[in-house]
């Protein structure tokens, strides 16, 4: 176990964590403000990735693609909110789950219909394709560091948006008493559309950037969505701070578990057995973490009002 490997895996965990935060913050914001559980959040991630890959492939510029991806995700989010989601705010959770599950089917199959089943590829932009040296001698891709930086920037921006701006004040007010802010003359419908589109844009941003690391394909949003659910359950549904801490926790535990559990089992098992058992247990690790946290705190670490 070298120091450089540890350092590299810590960075990988951090990168997964910041990406999860982009997804989880949108989910938790939508739940906190509108009380809506949205399974289709992963679809915005997929929309962002597909539009970025397609636009970047057409124009040749990653940055144009990135902008288009984020805008497309936000626009799709706003349209979905106007057409479907706003009919669900006063419904039971069961209806919300089913309607957004239906949206997943529509988005996934619709995308497959438009783009086909074979994955699209998105290249890391030229300027960020290098690698930097880490202490210990190994090299780490610049693009992954940029992803971490973007995640941190978004976290800071969200914090400022919510605590320092008028829009943030309305969002906080909407979380604590939606009838009252309606009575104070704030257009709640517009606020809801805005918050929903903001969440979708963040998911689109995550999808666009991860699209440069993995293949862009139908269904790519689903594993991330479920990880984001684990994150917000751990952090406390509705809490941005909880989403941040939960994301980092899940990102680090998942990444480090996958690397170190098999080597741990090699100490007292044959290598073949150890990699099998280790991989199987590592894939369960974050769920075990979730179960342990919920056993002590059924509402998550930083439960918001609810």
């Amino acid at each position: 176990m070298t120091l450089s490997l540890l350092f590299e895996q810590l960075l990988n965990g951090l990168q997964l964590g910041t990406m999860l935060f982009l997804m989880a913050s949108g989910l938790t914001l939508v739940f906190g403000v509108m009380g809506l559980i949205n399974l289709a959040h992963g679809s915005f991630y997929m929309v962002g990735a597909f539009v970025t890959a397609w636009t970047a492939g057409t124009t040749g510029s990653f940055w144009v693609g990135l902008g288009a991806g984020i805008l497309a995700a936000a626009a799709v989010g706003a349209v979905v909110e106007l057409l479907v989601i706003r009919r669900l705010y006063h419904r039971q959770h069961l209806d919300q789950v089913l309607a957004t599950f239906a949206l997943i089917l529509i988005f996934s199959e619709g995308t497959r219909w438009l783009f086909g089943s074979s994955p699209l590829w998105l290249n890391v932009p030229e300027a960020l394709s290098g690698a930097v040296a880490l202490p210990g001698g190994s090299r780490y891709p610049v693009f992954r560091l940029v992803i971490i930086a973007v995640g941190v920037l978004v976290a800071v921006a969200l914090f400022l948006l919510i605590s320092r701006t008028r829009l943030g004040m309305r969002i906080r007010a909407g979380e604590s008493d939606r009838e009252m802010i309606g009575a104070l003359g704030i257009d709640i419908a517009k606020l809801y559309t805005l918050v929903f589109a903001l969440g979708a844009a963040l998911a689109g941003l995550a999808g666009s950037m991860i699209g440069a690391l993995q293949s862009v394909q139908v269904g790519m949003g689903e594993p991330v969505l479920i990880l984001a659910f684990v994150v917000i359950v751990i952090g406390g549904i509705g809490s941005i701070k909880g989403a941040l801490i939960g994301s980092l926790l899940v990102g680090l535990v998942d990444t480090l578990g996958r690397v170190f559990l098999p080597s741990l089992f090699k100490l007292f098992m044959t290598p073949a057995e150890a990699s099998g058992v280790g991989a199987a247990l590592a894939s369960m690790l974050i769920y075990v973490l979730m179960a342990i946290i919920l056993a002590f705190k059924p509402k998550g670490l930083f439960a918001a009002n609810d």
């Binding site: 559980i37 959770h93 789950v97």
Partner: peptide
């Protein structure tokens, strides 16, 4: 919470 935990 229940929905998401059973899913997880």
């Amino acid at each position: 919470y229940f929905i998401m935990i059973t899913l997880a």
